[in-house]
Amino acid sequence: MKKLAVSVFCLGSIFSFAQENDLGAWYMYFGNNKISKKLNFHNEIQYRNFDAIGDLEQLLIRTGIGYDLTENNNNILLGYGFILSRPYINGEKSENIEHRIFQQYITKQKFGRFNLQHRYRLEERFLQNDFRMRFRYLLGFNIPINNKEMLPKTFYASVYNEIFLHLDSPVFDRNRVYGALGFVINKNMRVEAGYMNQLQENKNRGQIQIGFYNNIPFTKN
Rank of each mutant, 00 (worst) to 15 (best):
K3R: 11
V8I: 14
V8E: 10
C10W: 08
S16G: 01
Q19Y: 06
L23E: 08
G31Y: 01
I35T: 14
S36I: 12
K38I: 11
K38W: 14
Q46C: 04
G54T: 06
E57Q: 10
Q58E: 15
L60R: 02
R62Q: 03
T63Y: 02
D68L: 06
T70Q: 13
T70R: 12
I83L: 10
S85P: 11
R86V: 08
P87A: 07
I89F: 07
N90H: 10
E92W: 07
K93W: 07
S94P: 06
E98V: 11
E98N: 12
H99A: 01
R100N: 06
I101F: 10
F102G: 01
F102S: 01
F102Q: 02
K108M: 06
Q109A: 14
Q117D: 11
H118R: 09
Y120N: 07
R121A: 05
L122G: 04
E123H: 03
E123P: 00
Q128K: 06
N129P: 02
R136E: 06
R136M: 05
L138S: 02
L139T: 07
F141I: 08
N142Y: 09
N147Y: 14
M150C: 11
K153V: 08
F155Y: 15
Y156D: 13
Y160M: 10
F164G: 00
L165R: 00
D168K: 13
D168E: 14
P170V: 14
V171C: 07
F172I: 10
D173N: 15
R174N: 15
R174E: 09
R176V: 01
G182P: 04
G182M: 04
F183V: 06
N188E: 02
M189Q: 04
M189E: 00
G194F: 08
M196R: 03
N197Q: 14
L199W: 05
E201M: 02
I208R: 08
I208Y: 13
Y213K: 03
N215S: 13
F218S: 04
T219Q: 11
T219D: 10
K220G: 05
